[in-house]
Amino acid sequence: MILEYLSYPFVQNALVAGVLISLCAALLGVPLVLKRLSFIGDGLSHVAFGAMAVAGALSLADTMALSLPVTIAAALLLVRAGRGAKTGADAMLAMLSVGAMATGYLVMNLKPSSSNVSGDVCTTLFGSVSILTLTDLDVWLSVGLSLAVCALWLFFYHRIFDMTFDETYAKACGARTALFNSVSAVVIAVVIVISMRLVGTLLVSSLIVVPAIAAMRVAKSFRGVCAVAAVFTVVCSLAGILAAVVAGTPVGSTIVAADIAGFGILSLAGRFKR
């Protein structure tokens, strides 16, 4: 039966786009989780929600045209705040994410882009109910951006390790740490905005965080964590998307459920090994 589903182009589209998107979210998630910055992914997705709502109210043809620059700006702001501010980036982030969320919902109600406001909100929060809604442009955009992010990540793999393990030492070695942090903030923002289409704003951070913490349960080296996280997320996304197609469940939450189940298995495996 699965083979039959696989012959539909929209299922193939969803599989390719979904797997690639979750792969780059997982790869970027490893340094984020290790640097104790997981909450940034969550916060940024809320900001992206607000921006998308405003873009919808303005009846922009492509909501990404607004949500992408706004999310990038928020990410850069957070990186800067985390470095110098004394109040701490976490309080700032909490304010920013709740503020953006509230503004988004407010705008959606004030100036609804369709008659079904709660349906719109639900789709933005939890992703498309059916993957049929992914357009060809969506798919190509996701595939292109994901491949670019993965290539960038591979090229800077060792630099990412240096910066994650010991930023002070990297700086003493002459690495341009401020530039690196800004570039990674931009990349994270891009990944969050493109993966939002798939799983929705509320569930995006699970694509970033879960593979990394699951991999940390079993792997003992940085390379191992990255490799396990990559395989983990590919398997879970494939399983999640196929299950969603077959059972007719919402894609985003099915992928996340598969992730959580995978996390449980790896946790058990990690405990067993010790």
Binding site: H158, R159, F161, D162, F165, Y169, A170, M216, K220, S221
Partner: peptide, 13 residues
């Protein structure tokens, strides 16, 4: 989660 080799190697960065 880094191996000793990975940490030592990063001295060559």
């Amino acid at each position: 989660p880094a191996s000793v080799r990975e940490v030592v190697q990063s001295g060559c960065q």
